[in-house]
C-alpha cells in the first residue's frame, strides 16, 4: 500500500564527475542519482523506489551551462526548466524548447526540475523528450567508462525506458541550431494548465522560399509508450508545398503512425482524433497568409 513518509536514506554530495564515479563504485546498484528531484522525491514518498543512498549531482559544474558553437547548441543536463525558458541562446537556437517550457507542469516544478531528469525519466506524456526527438538532438551520456552519444530518437526505448546503462548519466543535450528556414511548434491538449497532456505534438520542419517542406519531424507525446516520431505523416509532408491538402495527407497518415493506449481521460480513438487536431493546429501556423484566409 502506498505511503507518504520516506524511509531512512543515505545522502552523498558529489561535486565532480570523479566524485560521482567514486560514490557509484562504493554504493553500486543501491545508489540513486538525485538532480532536480521532481520525480524521484515523489516515488520515494510513495515508496515506489527503494534506494539506500542518494547521490546529489546538482553541484557538478561539468553538467551545467548552455553554450552555442559551430551550429550546435549544448545544454547541460542540470539546466532547470525555468532556466531553459529564459535563456537567450535557447530562444535563438532552439525556440521550440523555449515554447515548451510554459507547458511543463507548474512554476515550482519548473524551478527545480532539470532537462536531464525529464529525459532520463522518459515519461511518455512529457514535453521535453518529444522536443529533443523533434529537434534531432543528440543525448550525451557519461559514465566511469567515458562518454558516448546517442541520437534522441534512439534514446527512448519504451515506457519509462531509455538507452541509459547502469552507472550512466545524461551529461548534456546537443541540438542543431535553428536556421531561417526552420519552423517549430509545440501544441498539446491538457485537462488543466500544467497537467500532463492527453495528447501533444512537437513539430519541426524546414520551409524553403517556395513553401516546400523538408526534414519534417512530427513527434507526438501522451499517445504511446514514449515520444512517437510519426514517420508516415512526415513522409506525407516531405517535398510537398505546405497547404491544407498536405496537412490533410499528414493527418491521414497518422493512422499508421499511432497506436495510442486508452487512459483515464479517454479511449485510443480520442487520442487519434486529438493527434489529427494538433497536426492541423501546429502545421496551420506555418501556412502562408493566403492559405489561412482560404
Amino acid at each position: 500500500m502506498v505511503r507518504m513518509k520516506w524511509p531512512a536514506i543515505g545522502y552523498v554530495r558529489a561535486t565532480s564527475l570523479e566524485d560521482l564515479w567514486t560514490a557509484q563504485a562504493a554504493h553500486g546498484g543501491s545508489a540513486q542519482v538525485l538532480a532536480g528531484g521532481q520525480t524521484l522525491l515523489a516515488t520515494l514518498a510513495f515508496r515506489l523506489s527503494d534506494p539506500k543512498v542518494l547521490i546529489d549531482i546538482t553541484r557538478i559544474a561539468a553538467l551545467r551551462g548552455i553554450g552555442a558553437q559551430g551550429g550546435v547548441l549544448r545544454i547541460g543536463a542540470l539546466t532547470r526548466h525555468a532556466e531553459l525558458g529564459r535563456d537567450p541562446l535557447v530562444r535563438q537556437h532552439a525556440p521550440l524548447l523555449a515554447e515548451a517550457v510554459p507547458l511543463i507542469a507548474h512554476p515550482a516544478i519548473r524551478n527545480r526540475g532539470t532537462i536531464g531528469g525529464s529525459l532520463a525519466y522518459a515519461d511518455p506524456a512529457a514535453e521535453l523528450p518529444a522536443c529533443v526527438v523533434a529537434l534531432g538532438a543528440t543525448i550525451v551520456l557519461a559514465s566511469a567508462r567515458g562518454e558516448r552519444r546517442v541520437a534522441a530518437e534512439d534514446f527512448f526505448t519504451g515506457l519509462l525506458q531509455t538507452a541509459l546503462e547502469p552507472g550512466e548519466i545524461i551529461a548534456a543535450v546537443e541540438l542543431p541550431s535553428a536556421t531561417a528556414a526552420t519552423r517549430c511548434a509545440i501544441v498539446e491538449v491538457a485537462r488543466r494548465s500544467g497537467d500532463y497532456a492527453m495528447a501533444g505534438l512537437a513539430a519541426c520542419l524546414s520551409l524553403d522560399a517556395a513553401g516546400t517542406v523538408a526534414a519534417p519531424r512530427l513527434v507526438f507525446f501522451g499517445v504511446g509508450s514514449g515520444p512517437v516520431l510519426a514517420a508516415k505523416a512526415g513522409a506525407a509532408l516531405a517535398g510537398r508545398v505546405l497547404d491544407h491538402a498536405a496537412i490533410g495527407a499528414a493527418q491521414m497518415a497518422l493512422a499508421e503512425d499511432l497506436d495510442p493506449p486508452a487512459d483515464m481521460h479517454g479511449p485510443p480513438e480520442m487520442k487519434r482524433h486529438l493527434a489529427r487536431v494538433l497536426t492541423q493546429r501546429a502545421l496551420g501556423r506555418f501556412l502562408p497568409a493566403s492559405e489561412i484566409a482560404a
Binding site: 491538449v189 485537462r191 492527453m198 481521460h265 479517454g266 479511449p267 480513438e269 480520442m270 482524433h273
Partner: peptide, 12 residues
C-alpha cells in the same frame, strides 16, 4: 470531460 463532449458530438 473532453471525451464526453467529443462523444456527444459524434466525433469519437
Amino acid at each position: 470531460t473532453p471525451a464526453s463532449i467529443l462523444r456527444a458530438l459524434g466525433t469519437i
